[in-house]
Computed example of a mutant assay.
Amino acid sequence: MNVVDDRPEPPKRGSEREMLRAYLDFHRATLAMKCQGLSDEELRQQSMPPSTLSLLGLVRHMAEVERTWFRRVIGREEGLPFVWSEKGDFQEAYEAGASTRAEAFAAWEAEVEHARRIEREAETLDVQAHFARWGEDVSLRFVMLHLVHEYARHNGHADFLREGVDGVVGA
């Protein structure tokens, strides 16, 4: 299967904010590209026992990550539940055995749109909010850098997962 690479190319020059936005969107698009053209069953295919890691699990996990950092932390939406865990456990998102592309991507895309709105509305990257789990304040700059890192790491996993499903490799 040929995968269409329609990811936005990050600029080589620009403001700090433009660069962070562009690289975050590039990595978001990379995860979506790794899932292109696969059935629900293929997206749920796990890497190797005992790991339950799957492409669909990564999409679900990144929905939780976007939701936590942008809506709960920077947006200060108190009491916002996790999408897939009543216990507030990030790991539960990886358990995608009964999930579908439609369900996972709808949640992830909605969280990405919330994140983009919150970032656009922030006056500066220096906006700070408290991350209770660490007991520390973090800036929007940190959150955006953290998500670039999180996506880049998980996109590496997605490379291996995709290759295991149908042999597609690259980018």
Rank of each mutant, 00 (worst) to 15 (best):
L140C: 07
F160R: 02
G88W: 08
W69V: 06
V112Y: 08
R153D: 05
E123F: 05
T30Q: 07
S39C: 13
L31C: 09
D159T: 07
V65R: 02
N155K: 02
F26T: 01
L38M: 13
S139Q: 08
S139H: 05
E16H: 06
P11Y: 05
D40N: 14
E109S: 14
A63H: 00
L53P: 00
L58F: 09
S47G: 13
F26D: 03
M33G: 05
E119C: 04
F105R: 07
G88E: 12
V148Q: 06
D40A: 09
E113G: 01
F90N: 04
Q91H: 13
V138D: 01
V165Y: 06
E9G: 05
E123R: 12
P10A: 02
R17V: 04
S51F: 12
V4F: 08
F70L: 12
A104M: 04
R67H: 09
L55M: 15
A98E: 15
K87W: 09
E66P: 02
L24K: 04
P50L: 06
S54F: 12
L20R: 03
G156I: 11
E119V: 15
H154C: 12
F26L: 10
M33A: 13
S99I: 03
V59L: 11
L53D: 03
R117L: 09
L43R: 00
A122L: 04
P11L: 10
E16K: 10
H114L: 03
C35M: 11
R153Q: 11
N155M: 05
D166K: 08
D89N: 15
W69L: 09
M19T: 12
L147Q: 14
A132S: 12
H146T: 02
R71F: 08
R153E: 12
L125R: 02
E41D: 14
M62Y: 05
F82V: 08
S99M: 14
A98W: 11
V165S: 01
R153A: 11
V4P: 00
P8G: 01
Q91Y: 11
H146I: 10
A122M: 04
E42P: 00
H61N: 02
S139A: 11
R117I: 07
S54E: 15
V138Y: 06
G164M: 15
Q46Y: 02
R101P: 02
Q46V: 15
D89R: 14
A96V: 12
